[in-house]
Amino acid sequence: MTDFLKIAKKKFSSRLILGTGKFPSKENMEKALAAAETEIVTVALRRVNLDNPSDNLLNFIDPQKYLILPNTSGAKTAEEAIRLARLAQASGISSWIKLEITPEPRYLLPDGEETLKAAEILVKEGFIVLPYINADPILARKLEDIGVATVMPLGSPIGSNKGFKTIEAVNIIIEQASVPVVVDAGLGRPSDAALALELGADAVLVNTAIATANNPTKMAEAFKAAVLAGRLAFKAGLATEKTSAAASSPLEWLSKIQ
């Protein structure tokens, strides 16, 4: 039985997407990617240095093994994000784009209005668009109407490791979405990732929690296991919580009625 994650007609066995920032070395990052058995790796275009091979992140990510998903980190407006996306396409990196538009540099929260604007233009230009958004179910639906490939609501602010704090709103997004829902940002522990998958999120994106762990490789492995466990639990159908003890056959009394 195969349980694929499908994004824009592409099939993936792994439901763990990794970011490439904040690692203590490129070699360390390579090992973590391998240990996570991820298939999608996101890269900040502003960090891509085509002029200097030793500083070029892309030289450390094997495109045969991973789908490279460029992101527009650093963009503060739709216009800037669009320019970055076009640059990624023109330099042959990809026509998939993770749309990140964060006008405020402290919490890096996504600007829904600008994201919607940029997504509309990029989808029309033929890009596969994966937008990073606040956990806003209406925005998620609007983006879906436009034709984005996934929606990526945040669990908590990027890099905060605060965990899955937007759970109620993400539940609504999951219930309503017909594109994959990827919980992105803020997942600090493997258990946060497991929880997201248990609830029916299609995938998670993790970066800081792995890159800044004492042992990124081991942490990548832990996230891999958590994502598998969460997905398995979702497929198995979680038993509902009970507030009091109940007989195993709640209708037993029926047979006792003469």
């Binding site: 690692f23 275009l45 240095n49 963009a75």
Partner: peptide, 17 residues
């Protein structure tokens, strides 16, 4: 910097931004 366990970053910005 590498010996101390840090990753050196030379490019962290793109002129198109």
């Amino acid at each position: 910097v590498k010996n101390s366990g840090f990753d050196p970053i030379l490019k962290n910005w793109d002129p198109v931004i």
